[in-house]
């Protein structure tokens, strides 16, 4: 019983970070219909900015997180304005696949040149603090990451549902032509969406850097996880990403515990395939344009 509870706890902890890492992927796909294959780069960018803040300013990663989010917002905003959107405008949405994939490869190599391919870590001194409750181990860093992820996802949900800019983003996602007719600067809204996605991915990158070793090559798996999470949870909403991430985390740890440590990825992608067959919109799928 303790093993089951421990697996569920570990799954929730792991899943919360997956959710935060994927929420931007979901947002961009939901609003713009763009499958951003450079999403993992945004995650890793966050981790590297926090690393620089740690090395040069001595900032703890958690303290650096808001600044990292702002910088990632700006970087992603510019990325959409300069690279992604012009490519889509000249061709079609499919070209975004090639553009973002190509950009991911280029940026990964730039990171490798700048930071070396060596693994890095943002692990703070308090990372080992833990306590036991009824035989179940709770680690302080996991709990901090869980709390940070839930707060940030709630914040995004608040922005999308309560603030005027959120309503404009949703309106653009629902009917871009109608939004344009109402005077909305669609290109700017797309760039802001990209920026928001980058900010949340960067914030997730900080938490990931605290929890796991990372290198430029890690970006690929965070893009794949982003894709898996949104397919499971549903595209275009913060709650869908949250649900998908938690589900993926729990599938992973339960599989490790009860089937074998070699199979969590296999099981996760089996569930993914089943989901695509049974419910292509994901569990909390909605009617954002990208998912239709």
């Amino acid at each position: 019983m303790v093993h089951l509870v421990q697996s569920l706890v570990d799954g929730l902890m792991q899943g919360s970070v997956l959710s935060l890492a994927a929420v931007g992927f979901s947002l961009i796909f939901g609003v713009m219909g763009v499958v951003n294959l450079s999403h993992g780069i945004m995650v890793i960018l966050g981790a590297y900015i926090a690393l620089l803040a740690k090395q040069f300013l001595g900032l703890d990663a958690l303290v650096a997180l808001p600044f990292v989010a702002v910088l990632c917002f700006l970087a992603s905003y510019g990325y959409d304005r300069i690279i992604v959107h012009p490519a889509i405008r000249r061709s079609n949405l499919l070209s975004s696949l090639l553009v973002t994939y190509g950009a991911a490869l280029v940026i990964q190599n730039v990171f490798t040149l700048a930071f070396s391919p060596d693994f890095q870590s943002l692990r703070p001194a308090y990372a080992n603090a833990h306590f036991r409750l009824g035989g179940v181990v709770f680690n302080s860093l996991d709990l901090i990451s869980l709390a940070a992820s839930l707060i940030l996802i709630a914040l995004l949900s608040l922005v999308l549902n309560r603030l005027p800019i959120g309503r404009v983003i949703k309106a653009t996602a629902e009917q871009s032509l109608a939004a344009r007719l109402c005077g909305v600067d669609i290109d700017r809204i797309y760039a802001i969406t990209f920026g928001l996605a980058g900010a949340f991915a960067g914030a997730a990158g900080v938490l990931i850097g605290m929890l796991y070793p990372f290198s430029p090559a890690s970006q690929e798996q965070w893009t794949i996880y982003g894709f898996a999470v949104v397919v499971l949870g549903g595209i275009g909403s913060a709650s869908g990403a949250l649900f998908g991430g938690l589900l993926l985390g729990i599938i992973s740890t339960l599989t490790t515990q009860f089937i074998g440590a070699a199979y969590p990825n296999a099981m996760a992608f089996l569930v993914l395939v089943l989901m695509l067959v049974i419910r292509p919109n994901g569990i909390l799928g909605n009617a954002f344009s990208g998912s239709r």
Binding site: Q221, S252, T255, T256, A261
Partner: peptide, 20 residues
């Protein structure tokens, strides 16, 4: 003997088994 996939990103499940 715990067999991980070629690229593992989280080993908390294995570690919880080892700590048991």
């Amino acid at each position: 003997v715990y067999r991980l996939p070629p690229t593992a990103n989280d080993v908390s499940g294995v570690v919880s088994q080892i700590s048991g």
